[in-house]
Every structure is written in C-alpha cells, then in structure tokens.
Write a protein that binds this DNA or RNA. Structure first.
Lengths: 133, 133
DNA sequence: ACTATTTAATTGCAAATACAATAACTATCC
DNA sequence: GGATAGTTATTGTATTTGCAATTAAATAGT
C-alpha cells in the first residue's frame, strides 16, 4: 500500500514546482500563494491557526506572512480580547490577485484528474477527504 | 475539484514532517531517507535520473546525495560508457538501514489509510496511479 | 570532421527553512 | 489571587534550498 503515499508525495512535489514557477513573477513563490488563498477564503485566522491550516512550520509561516505583509498582499490586526493573537487578512493586492491564484489552482487540479471519469473524480475526492479528517 | 489537490498537499506536508522527525537521529532528515529507499530499490540510477524519480530539484538532489555519500549511506560509480554519468548505489549503511526505512514508510501508509475498507484502499491506489502515469 | 544542440554534473549565491530558545500573555488549578 | 502550565508570537542561527550560470561530454546535423 505504500504506493499510495509515494504517489501522493510525487504529485505534491511536481505541483509545487509548477505553481512556484508560475507565481514567482508575483513574488508568491515558495508556497506563498497558498497563504493568500487561504486567508482570502477564511479571513481573520491568527498566525498559528493559518500555519496549521496549511500544514507548514509555524516559524516559516510567520516569516512568509511578514513578507506578504511587506509586499502588500496581507495585513495583520491585533486581537482585541487576546493580546497574544495577530489575525491575518488580505490587503488590496491580495484581494486583487485571488481570482488568478484560484483559477490556476483550479486549472492545475483539473489537469491532474483529467484522465479520470467524473465518477472517479468524485470517488477520489471522497476517499482523500476520508484520509484527511 | 481543487479539494483533491489541497488534500494531497496537506497529506504530503504532514507526512514529511513526521518522517523527517523520525529519521533525524540517523542523519536522514530533509527527505534524505527517500534517496536511500529509491536507490536500494533501483540501484545504478545516475544522479539526474534519481532526482527525477523523486521529483526533487536536481541541484538539491545532487547535494543531498553528496552528503549521503559522506555519511556512508550511498556510493557513486562513474559510468564506463558515458563519462558524464555518475551512478548511485547504496553503501553498507544504506543497505543496513533500508528495512527500517521501509517499515516506517509502510506503517505511515497503513496509518494514513486505516479508515478505509480494503476495497477503498485498492480503489484509491488505482486512482492515484492513474494520475501519476 | 566540424559545428550546433542537447544533456549531465557541478558551483555560486541569495533566500528560505526549521529547530531551539525566549518573551508576552492567558488559562487553570489549588 | 498567586503559582503553574500552556499558548502565541517572535528571534537567533545554522543548515538547506533552488535558480542561474558554468563546465564537460555526448549526440545530431550538415
């Protein structure tokens, strides 16, 4: 059964190479585009929550978010109740670029599963969801 | 359908974190263990071939292999016909450690799919194989 | 045979990465 | 309400990473 884990790893690494190449021109290589997508879709996560949601080391995520704030893609807000928390939102540039990021993700995903029938796509989706949750 | 690509990425990142933590004590973090496994299973690949087989940047792969050669896990041999090629083989330490690496990969994979029925496991394996090839 | 193109390995270097440690704050327990 | 434990953000630092460029060798084309 280890073929499953190898195939999954292979797909991820190949996808990341393509996506990073695509978004380097926007300063969103090194998986930075993921942060913009996730933040757009779920605004107001605090830093550690965002890091966990993308399964990336918290210190790495922290520095990536810093860079994205400096670049104008994201912005941070202190939580009113809990002074430890800094919540993440998209800034103007992040808002503007989201459609393009999402379209590319969609396209990449469609290409990946293009040799499957619709039933197979649904089944794969269902099975993967079962692994994750 | 982009849930598929997200779930796949999430599984990979989580798996890599666990596996790197497990094998750090052996000096096989940063995905180095993958090279030992693949080389053991297909000895004599040249450097670029090995890099492609694990979907990792060739320069990164090159440096990782260098380190593994220094650590006694792998060894290199010049190709007799084509003077550009350096073929990779496991050395003593690589040979010795392979069973443990493979057992861990097996265990990780089994844990990952433990909530699936046997039929579902087979189906997932089949669908993923269809994506990769 | 000779030039041009391709492919492999390698190095240079700036940036990214992640473990470890610390500081600030919150929640819990007695 | 004060000590203790747990959580979050942050920094220090050494290592890793990967794009770009270089060298060397093989292959293709004429």
């Amino acid at each position: 059964m280890f073929a499953i884990i190898r195939d999954i790893g292979a797909i991820t690494r190949e996808t990341e190479i393509k996506t990073n190449a695509e978004f380097r021109r926007l300063g969103l290589a090194n998986n930075a585009f993921i942060y913009v997508i996730r933040t757009y879709e779920k605004p107001g996560m605090f830093l550690g929550e965002l890091a966990d949601s993308v399964q990336i080391d918290r210190t790495t995520a922290f520095r990536t978010v810093q860079k994205l704030v400096n670049n104008g893609y994201l912005r941070l807000e202190n939580d009113a109740k809990d002074k430890r928390l800094r919540r993440v939102f998209v800034a103007q540039k992040g808002e503007a670029v989201y459609p393009e990021l999402h379209a590319f993700e969609q396209h990449t995903s469609d290409t990946l599963v293009s040799r499957l029938t619709n039933d197979e796509k649904d089944e794969l989706k269902r099975l993967l969801a079962k692994l994750v949750y």
